[in-house]
Structures are given as structure tokens and as C-alpha cells.
Design a protein around this nucleic acid. Sequence first.
DNA 1: ATGGCGGCTCGCAGCCGA
Length: 256
Amino acid sequence: MKIATWNVNSLKVRLPHLLDWLAATQTDVVCLQETKLEDGKFPRDEIEAAGYQVAYSGQKTYNGVAIVSRSPLSDIQAGIPGFADEQKRVLAASIDGIRVICVYIPNGQSLDSDKYVYKLAWLKALNVWLQDELARHPKLALLGDYNIAPEDRDVHDPAAWAGNVLVSQPEREQFRALLGLGLTDAFRRFEQPEQSFSWWDYRAAGFRRNLGLRIDHILLSDELDTACTAVEIDMAPRKLERPSDHTPVVATLTTP
DNA sequence: ATGGCGGCTCGCAGCCGA
């Protein structure tokens, strides 16, 4: 089973890329972020015609998450229970006995922004909810755009990024707190190339010069971690015409 | 060099992303 995360930065624009990629890679589950589509405008028919089922929670202009799956999705939950949030950033579903949680964690904008306060509060609420989810679902995968580069090796130029959002100490502590719940950063369980990133700025030829960040992650509970045989960043979609600024991260599991 | 690109909108300029 291949399970992936991909911030598509507008599904309206990237739908052809998604459908081509699913056909080429035979991915079983992909969590999407930044669909930027109201639910009434979601391209359900096109995705179903490709042999997938889909759950989504979206809004106009910003945010929006979806889970695309070959197998049926059940027990679908949008948002973090008990955490009032108009921004559509969370979607959970059970697929083949696995609890799949798709997250688009807030960016934070800058360390002195109200959006940074929101980001940290959001991460705290996610942590509290995940304690419940993990207790109920021993096979749990948390995939998405975390907007956090966990370590300096996940940043092309740590000195240039120092003092910025995505790399600040409080954000990294929140990331480690998620690991403290019993989750593993699956990417780092395997040998990886140096300078491995999942996002590159559109500007300044960021991708060509590999000036990127690793901010898209797949965290697995212990039961899934032992079933994970590989994690890879798939650079192919980032090389296409009119790409998303993120590229997919893919985990291979031996189950089911 | 805080710009740069690319997405969005009751658009034609400004906001936001990371």
C-alpha cells in the first residue's frame, strides 16, 4: 500500500497533475492540502472516474483538504473536535483499518504575527485530539503540510532562515511533541539523500537551485511504523509545467 | 537585495503563501 501527502496549491489548476500522477504511481491513498475549492466545486466526478473515492472539506481561496483513496473511506471527521476553526485544515478517515489524518497546519506568517499565535494554539489542539485518536486507532498515519522544518538539515540555508516561521524553536517543540505521542517521522527511518526537501519557492529559481525546505511529513504510529518499508519524496511532479510549489511524499506499507 | 512567483478574488491591485 502506498500512502502519500501532497500540497497541490489549487486543485483546480493541479487536477491534471494529480490524475496523471495517480495513474503513473498507482498510489492507494493521497492526502491533499490547499485545494482552495468550495465543496460544491470539488472535482469528485473526475477523481471517481479514475477509480478513486474521495472525502473533502474545502473553502474558497484558502486552505481546503481532501483524502483520495482506492478503498472506501469511513468515519470521516472534518476539523479538530472542540476546536472552533473556520479554516478547513483537517480531515480524517478510516481506510483499510488505518486511521488517516490529513492536516494543513497553519503557516504562521511571522513570529510577531497573530497568525503565529494561532499556529501554536492550533498545534496544541491537534496534539490533544491526537491523544484520543491514537488511543482509539493504534494504526494511525498523520500526513500533511506541517509548515515546520523539524531540524536544520531540513532547511537549505539554516542561517538565512533563522528567526523565521517554519523553523522557530516553539514550532519545532510542537513537532517533537507530536513525536512524543508515539509517532515517528517515517522519512527519517530510512537512508535519504542530503538536502532532501518537499517545497521550493517559486521565486528566484528555488527548485532549480534546490533552495528548499522539508515541511511535508508522514508521521506513523508504532504499529504502522513497523509496516513501513520505504519513504520517498517524488520530485517528478515538481518538474512539470505549472507545478505546485510542493511535491508529494510517499510511504510504502506492507499492510494491509 | 524582503524582491523574485503564482494562486486567489464581486479582480484590473492587493493579499497570501513559506
